[in-house]
Simulated assay, not measured.
Amino acid sequence: MNITIFKKVYTINSLETILYDEKLVIQEVLKHICEKKIKKVVIEQPVVLDETKDSLYSIVFLRELTSLGLIIDWKTENNNYNFGKIYHIFPPKLIINDHHQELENWKTSYCYGLLHYRKGPDFILIEDKRSGSFKLNYNIGDMILLEIIKNDVLFNKNHKLEKKEKAAVQLLFDHNLILKHGDYYVFLPYRLR
C-alpha cells in the first residue's frame, strides 16, 4: 500500500490497494486518518466508478471520508455512470471525459450533510436534502431495518435474507437510500459526525 502523510494530507496512490481487503482495511484507514487528525485525503489514481462490487467499496470509502468532513482530492472518469445518486459525496476534482458538465452539476449540488443519518437509542434519523426544493426525514425504529443499516456492509441480493429483510431492503431501495450495482447493494447515507 502506497500511503504518504505530509502536513495533515493523506495520500493514497490507488484505492485498489486498500479496497481488496474490503471493510476491515477501510475501517483501519479511517481510524488512522482520525487519529492523525488528517484534513485532506488525496487519491492519486482515478477512482473507477461503474456497476461493479469493487466500485461500491470505493463509494463506501468516499462516503466515509465525506462523513468526516474531509477535503478529498480525487478524480474519476465518465463511463456513463449515474453520478447523480452519489452527489452527497464530496465531488471529485476532475471527471475525465466529462462531456455533459457532470462535475459542474455535482459541485453545484453538493453540500455537507446532503444525505446523512444520526443514531439515537434504538432508532436512526435520516435526512435527505438531495431534491433541493424540500427535505425528507425518515425516522427508522424497525429492528430489521436498523440491523441492515448497522451492519453497513455490501450484501448480495442472493444473500440469505429472510422475507422481512428482503422487504426492508426493497423499502430502502424504493426511497433511494440504497445503491445497487449488479447483485450488490450498499446503504447510501453517511453518519453525521
Rank of each mutant, 00 (worst) to 15 (best):
S58W: 05
V48A: 04
T66E: 03
L65N: 06
T52M: 00
L65Y: 04
V47C: 04
E44Q: 15
D50R: 07
F61E: 07
T66Q: 04
E44H: 13
Y57T: 05
Y57E: 10
D50T: 09
L65C: 09
D50I: 09
D73V: 15
L70S: 03
P46L: 12
Y57G: 06
F61S: 08
I71L: 10
Q45L: 13
V47H: 00
L70F: 03
R63F: 07
Y57P: 06
T66F: 01
K53G: 04
L68I: 07
Q45H: 09
E44T: 15
F61R: 06
Y57R: 11
D54I: 11
L70D: 02
I59K: 05
S55F: 09
L56S: 10
L68C: 02
L62H: 08
K53P: 01
V60S: 13
I72R: 01
T66V: 08
S58G: 15
L70V: 04
V48R: 05
V47R: 06
K53Q: 11
S67N: 02
Q45N: 14
D50F: 07
D73Y: 12
L68N: 00
V48W: 06
G69F: 04
I72F: 03
D54Q: 15
I59S: 13
P46C: 09
K53V: 05
I72E: 01
V48I: 13
D73R: 12
D73Q: 14
L70E: 05
D50M: 10
L70H: 02
G69C: 02
E44C: 14
S67L: 05
D54K: 15
S67D: 03
E64M: 09
E64S: 02
L68A: 01
I71H: 07
L49R: 05
T52C: 06
E51R: 12
E64Y: 00
Q45A: 15
I59R: 12
E51K: 12
S55K: 08
T66W: 02
L49E: 10
V48Y: 00
T52Y: 03
S67V: 01
V60C: 13
I59L: 15
S55E: 07
I72T: 11
F61G: 02
L62R: 11
V48S: 08
E44W: 07
S55D: 05
L62F: 12
I71D: 10
L49I: 13
E44L: 15
E51P: 03
V60M: 15
S58D: 10
T52L: 00
E51F: 11
G69K: 02
Q45E: 15
L56I: 04
S58T: 12
R63Q: 14
L49C: 13
T52D: 04
I72C: 05
D54M: 13
G69N: 04
S67P: 06
L68P: 01
L49Q: 08
L70K: 04
E64N: 06
Y57L: 11
E44P: 12
L65A: 07
I72Y: 01
V60P: 04
E44G: 09
I59A: 13
L68S: 00
E51W: 08
L70W: 02
D54A: 13
S67W: 02
